[in-house]
């Protein structure tokens, strides 16, 4: 069952991205705050992709951070080792991430629930030792030191580096808008319907000729591509990469975004990303109490906010979305 119709989904996204677009007017002078905004957008892409996989396609994939890192490293290596223009390298990196997605998806999408979670998480776990290993160093990952100098993107004479955060911000906004539209199109298309059918009743879907496996694989590849693209963007923006991104912190943050945004409640994930990144920065001065509070927040929110912030918004703004927010039981 579709929770949001086409119109309200686009309106919602227009509002979020519209608000984001004018934020530099208020905080454009502060690199620190601009960075938070940029990270909001980058994580919004990743969280939306994850939502598409988990919430709509019903695949418990835990490999999202891994594909992000694969994209980041691939793009950095293409641009450094082969001198490819960063913009082109980003797309190539997206392709690499998609290829990895297919490679992982092939054996794994036939598995069930917790097994998929394990295998995809295994990709995450194995990535760090791989990037650090001799094999990793041979392809230019810089081993345990990481990559220290990644050239920034350059388009129309504008350098999108960490020193020019306003430019990076609008590039990130464009990327986020494009990715969100793609995700929305997927959800609205035949595929989205197919997925919900698969999720609700596999047998029924099969009888209609919907091949769960093929659809899942394509969506897996697509989200890996977009996530890899976001990772590549991140790499060229920050200008440095290390395996330390694969720590548990980032993974949990991403999950919190989904919890807050609501699983399968796109575009809630975008709002979830914005709220989580901002809250995380605000809690930063608290040191060790920050993850403590984040953890408690997850527990409380999962219990009290089953449909994430979107569900809450809908409860307080009645009439806007007449559709019932409760999912069908299955």
């Amino acid at each position: 069952m579709m929770n949001m119709n086409w119109k309200s989904m686009s309106a919602f996204m227009a509002v979020i991205f519209g608000v984001m677009a004018i934020m530099p007017l208020f905080v454009g002078g502060s690199d620190h705050l601009m960075h938070i905004l940029i990270m909001c957008l980058i994580w919004a892409i990743v969280a939306s992709c994850w939502d598409l996989i988990m919430g709509f396609a019903g695949i418990f994939s835990f490999g999202q951070v891994a594909f992000f890192v694969i994209g980041a490293y691939a793009s950095a290596i293409f641009s450094i080792q082969f001198g490819i223009n960063p913009v082109a390298a980003m797309f190539l990196a997206g392709m690499v991430a998609a290829a990895c997605g297919i490679l992982v998806g092939l054996p794994c999408l036939r598995l069930k629930g917790a097994y998929i979670a394990l295998v995809t998480f295994a990709v995450h776990m194995i990535l760090e030792p791989f990037l650090k290993s001799g094999m990793g160093r041979a392809i230019g990952t810089g081993g345990s030191q990481g990559i220290m100098t990644i050239p920034p993107m350059e388009l129309f004479g504008i350098v999108f580096s960490a020193d020019n955060k306003i430019a990076v911000f609008y590039a990130a906004l464009l990327l986020a808008v494009v990715c969100s539209i793609i995700i929305m199109l997927v959800i609205r298309s035949f595929w989205g319907t197919a997925f919900l059918a698969i999720k609700d009743s596999k047998d029924f879907a099969a009888s209609l000729g919907v091949s769960a496996f093929r659809h899942k694989l394509v969506v897996f590849a697509l989200t890996s591509f977009l996530t890899g693209l976001a990772g590549a963007f991140y790499g060229h923006y920050v200008g440095m990469l290390s395996t330390r991104m694969l720590g548990i912190d980032l993974f949990v943050m991403l999950m919190i975004m989904l919890v807050i945004g609501g699983i399968g409640k796109f575009p809630g994930a975008i709002l979830g990303a914005i709220i989580t990144v901002t809250a995380n920065e605000m809690l930063a001065p608290l040191g060790p109490y920050r993850p403590l509070i984040l953890g408690a927040m997850v527990v409380v929110l999962v219990l009290l906010l089953p449909d994430g912030i979107i569900g809450l918004v809908r409860r307080f703004i009645p009439g806007k979305n007449p559709a019932d927010s409760r999912s069908p039981s299955g």
Binding site: F60, I263, G264, P288, L294, G295, V298, V299, V302, S327
Partner: peptide, 26 residues
């Protein structure tokens, strides 16, 4: 009681893990 409880259980226990680990540290 919820339909997507399997994911929710993974998430809530992940939150609990974060809470407990950092609770130990504090």
């Amino acid at each position: 009681r919820r339909s997507d409880w399997e994911v929710k259980v993974m998430m809530i226990t992940l939150g609990l893990a974060l809470f407990m680990d950092n609770g130990f540290q504090v």
